[in-house]
Amino acid sequence: MDKKRPLVALVAILSLALLYIPSIAVAIFSVNNSRYGLAWRGFTLDWYKLLLQNEYIHQATINSLILAVVSTIASTILGTALALGLDRYPWPKTLHRFFDISINIPIVVPDIIMAVSLTLAFSFLRVITPIFELSLITLIIGHVTFQISFVTLVVRSRLASLNQETDEAARDLFASDFYLFRRVTLPLITPGVLAGAMLAFTLSLDDFIISFFTHGPDSVTLPIFIYASIKRGLTPEIHALSTLMLLFTVVLVVIAERLSRKF
């Protein structure tokens, strides 16, 4: 493609503007020295200072991080086990199909239906035990439920690229089950497991809909806090918070990009 295409470039730049102008606006208003209104009143970092003093935002940040870390660990273990169990053992064809369908449900079904189903599941399970009262625990359970499928998908694509001769060679050399897993299987699938975990982590941070339906009054996350603030009335602290979240996303994406080039 040696010819210059001004129209293509123009539309591309316009598209990127569409993606970035709102975020840039948020960043600008986060350093604007005006509590109300949208007029420019000079530069300030006061909103960032206020942000650090805000109890609710502290709590929401901690909740978001606990949620993302715990749900990622749980879903990575469960999802990897599922991927290994499905691909490494001889299952009858019909059973395999059934497994495939149940794994694909959260990927195909719209988030809001997943969220509604989880609400329903918790309301039934609450009859058995109060663990399922809406709280950080239900939030974690909800996130794990949609993360498992994505982790399984990523790990399975890694497993598909491995050959079974390595397994056979290890067995011929009298590797025990545990030794085979620890020394052969695990090192080979590690890139897939890490990629799956990374995906699960970002999905959790990115999620709003599942959280919205499964959180309790004491387990507000950052997106839910921001959503509630929009309804109450926006303050510059929210712009500061959003700007920091945006920067965090940028850092995560760049790290992920670096990591993916390594493997």
């Binding site: 970035y20 709102p22 949208l38 970002t202 990115d206 709003f208 997106p223 959003s242 996303t249 990009e257």
Partner: peptide, 20 residues
Amino acid sequence: ILIIIPFWTNVVVRTYAWLL
């Protein structure tokens, strides 16, 4: 990366930004 960043930015943050 310019396309990936908004992909991973929270939808609530990106949507309310239009209000501004």
